[in-house]
Amino acid sequence: MLRIIATRVVLGILTLLAVSILIFAATEILPGDVASAVLGQGATPETLRVFRKELGLDRPAHVRYAEWFTGAIQGDFGKALTNKRDILTSVTPRLKNTLFLAGYAALIAVPLSVALGILAAINEGKLADRLANIISLATISVPEFFIAYLLILFLAVKLRYFPSLSTVFADMPFAKKLHVTALPAVTLTMLVAAHMLRMTRSSVLSIMSQPYIEMAFLKGLSRSRVVLTHALPNAAAPIITVIALNLAYLIVGVVVIEVVFVYPGIGQFMVDGVSKRDLPVVQACGLIFASAFITLNTVADVLSILVNPRLRHPI
């Protein structure tokens, strides 16, 4: 089993490597090059030449990739094109903010939706299940900014419970921070919880149609015992995958939410970078998002291996 886990981890690292190449290569397929794209139509050949030199574009691509990637894994993402500031110093506090917000939402969403998903599955076809189905379907059908604006309109503008903009700074007291970021966190929670609930429900249901569940009922066991001791241990692997998938989704969902609430996180940083066409910033943010994504998936796969009885008790 250790070998399977090791293989999975190595695979994750290889994927990360391939992704970094892809991110880097993406900037190479530009018509013209980065310099002319950034400076636009009006650039004179002279300024272009200087700018190319400054970016190091006169050297071969693989050399630049090697430099960029070795720098990146040590935390050196270079300098932003627009304001020449070190990217790492801009990214660090923003990354912390984003992780805070995502963690906040995850702590509410995961237990809530997994529990509700299991409940819906147990009560398949009954009123509670159908209600959960319709509400979650509506929630996943709605764009994230719609929920955000609705919450702002009612909870911030009309009732004034929460601020409509989530301005946070480094030495803000923790309780205050929770209060200020409550609206974005709730928005994210609703979004992810709906997905997670539906996926948890369907993975538990697929277990419930297995013959050994029927056998458990025929043994005269109570419904709760069948679900808790016979269905759940087997549903663990799919549920872990569901959680990982949705946490990854949460990381991405954060981008739009940060923009709505003007929250100083890495998502907003990336969107700014994109609108200013600041490629080093975009690359850095892209790599960070992708690493988080790959790490989550790898961890989920390793956990699924760990809970698989066939692998835990080999022949």
């Binding site: 994927t15 530009l30 794209a37 990381i251 991405v252 994109v274 975009v282 994504f293």
Partner: peptide, 21 residues
């Protein structure tokens, strides 16, 4: 496809749009 799928879709799209406009 595996490699492409390990970059979040929105992030990937943002990167491409930042280059091509």
């Amino acid at each position: 496809v595996d490699v492409m799928l390990s970059i979040p879709l929105l992030v990937f799209a943002l990167m491409i749009l930042s280059m091509f406009g």
